[in-house]
Structure formats: structure tokens, C-alpha cells
Amino acid sequence: MRSFVEWLDTHAWSTALHESLWMYPLIESTHVLTVMLFVGMLAMVDLRLVGLAFRNVAVSHLTGRLLPWSVAGFVIMIATGVLLFYAIPVRTYESVWFRVKVVLLIAGGINAWWFHRRVQRDRTFWDNHPKPPTAVRVAGGVSLAIWAGVIVCGRMIAYNWFDCDRDPLPFVMWMAGCVVEASM
């Protein structure tokens, strides 16, 4: 894995993207602004699942009509996110925040998968219910918490407090996979 990101770092395009005057900020801004589409639409669905919004609208109508917008946002997020990683591969790979973010992304995927399995099982019973069953409300709440965590971690990648070259705590160094260079 490390050799892979180090190989990416040698690409001329990676350096060009990182140092570009307009492309990097444009991709970065697209990545940030798409949060309104991806997490924004998802949050509306989650709030319905928790029972805090659109209580008079069927859950299936929200998932059917809003999730496609959210998925479109997610695709843009992944595409721009991959480019941002490509521009600064080694530092991002060694970022604690990035690693926590990836773990949360996987957790978000598992939560969504679990939720959809449950939905397909007995949604007809609570589709029009203003306050869905506990398990559904928990899935909605967990989703809100996970994606909030992803946003916070994503923002924190930009700061360098825990970077390997700043000698973080041993625990952080281990989490970030810092390579300790021989001192002699």
C-alpha cells in the first residue's frame, strides 16, 4: 500500500494537480460544495427515518425521490475525492484524519446496507407511520452521526497537527503508519 502511494507521488500529473493554480481549488471546492447535495439530501431522508421531518410523507417516497440525488452527489464526492488524494497521496495516506474518515465511510456503507435489508423486509408496515420503529430510527440516527463524522474528519485533513513530520504521540504515529527513519 505504501509503495503504491509513493508510486502515485512520483506521477508528474499528481504534482501538476497539487501545484495547479486553479484545478486544485476548483476540485476541492466541488468536493466541499457537493456535501450540500450528498449529505444534505441524505440528511432529509435520515430525519424522516428518525421521525423528525416530513412525517406526513411516506418513507418510500423520500427514499425513492431524494436518494437518487444523494447518490449523484456521492459519485461526484468519490470522483473529486480520488483526485484530491491523487494530488497529495503520501501525506493523505499518513493522515490520521483521513484514516478515520475511511473507517467511517465503510461504517456508513455497512449501516446503509443493513438499513436497506431491513427496509425491504417490513417497510410496508411503517412506510406511512410518522414515527418508524426503533431499529429504523436508530439506523437514521447512526447515519446522521457517521456522515457528520466524515465531514469533520474531511475538514481536519487540511490541518497538519498530527502529521508524521511533527512528531505526534506514538499512538498517533502508529495509527497514521508513520515511517520512523533511522537516526544514524
Binding site: 466541499v32 450540500m36 444534505g40 439530501m41 440528511a43 432529509m44
Partner: peptide
């Protein structure tokens, strides 16, 4: 930023 996500959703 969390507020931005929520603002975006409720406007959209």
C-alpha cells in the same frame, strides 16, 4: 460545514 450540509439539504 455541518451547518452547510443541513442548509443545503433544507434548501434543496
Amino acid at each position: 460545514l455541518l451547518g452547510l450540509a443541513m442548509l443545503g439539504g433544507s434548501v434543496l
